[in-house]
Amino acid sequence: MDSRLQAESADVRARRPSRRFVLAGGSAAPFVTGAAAGDTDPEVARCASWLAIDAEQRRLQLEWGMLEGWLITHRSWYKLAPAQQAEIREGTRLAEIDARLNVLEVEGHALLKAMRPRPAKSVEAVIANLSVAARLIFVEDHPEAHGLITRAVRDLAAFSGGK
């Protein structure tokens, strides 16, 4: 685990939502397809890159959650001192995942920041932006908004010939 989390007390860790909980808030929004290197609209490629980062984050969050559960059940993970945690092989993988998730968070945030001020120049870019928005809005928190966005993605894709 990174130093931020190591410094926290067990009480604070117990109240903080786990990555497994965060993952459960995710949704099955559509992904942008066709964002090949030859696309003329860089916004589509930018969105596709963000969606790829999001997919990797979700995969790693799932792995992290499963590994965390195993460590809690089989190694009393949060009862161990940081030095003891460092001696456990599976704890090393947890730290690797955590470090990668930190990198992906920075990269994803930079891409989101780059998307904001740019108006879309194609229907494909609108679809790509809406696909990103669908991943950012949890269906459990805002089912109506999420449904409208995912329907808009499907409708725009159908109107544009499925591009």
Rank of each mutant, 00 (worst) to 15 (best):
M1D: 12
E63T: 09
V12M: 06
A29G: 08
I127N: 07
L67E: 09
W77E: 03
L156C: 12
A114P: 05
V44A: 05
S9T: 15
R154V: 11
T33G: 05
A83Q: 08
I127T: 01
P119E: 15
I97R: 04
L112A: 07
L71A: 11
G147K: 08
M66N: 13
A52F: 02
P143G: 06
A14R: 15
L80D: 01
A81L: 13
K121V: 13
L156Q: 06
A134G: 09
T150N: 10
D39W: 01
G25V: 07
T150H: 10
P42F: 02
S131C: 14
R58N: 00
E124F: 01
A158K: 11
E107P: 01
I53R: 01
R89W: 07
N129C: 11
Q84T: 04
D41A: 03
Q6G: 00
Y78S: 06
V44Q: 05
I97C: 02
E68W: 12
H109W: 05
F21D: 15
R15L: 14
S9A: 07
I53K: 01
G147Q: 10
A125C: 12
E68A: 13
V153F: 05
S131L: 08
K121L: 14
T73L: 13
V153A: 08
Q6S: 10
L101A: 07
E63W: 04
R116Q: 12
I72M: 12
G34A: 09
L5K: 07
R20V: 02
H109A: 13
E43K: 04
F21I: 14
P143Q: 10
R58K: 06
P30D: 04
V22F: 08
N102T: 04
L112H: 02
I72A: 12
Q6E: 14
A48M: 03
G108H: 04
L67F: 03
R16Q: 14
E63V: 07
A125W: 09
L62Y: 09
L5W: 15
F138G: 14
T150A: 06
S131T: 10
G91W: 13
G108W: 01
R154L: 10
D11I: 12
R59Y: 03
M115E: 03
L80G: 01
A86V: 02
L23P: 00
H142L: 14
D54E: 15
L112V: 01
V12R: 10
Q6V: 14
L23R: 11
T40P: 00
V106A: 10
K113D: 07
A158C: 05
A95K: 06
L67P: 02
Q61L: 11
A48N: 00
E144L: 12
G69S: 13
D155R: 10
E107G: 04
W77Q: 03
A114G: 06
A45E: 06
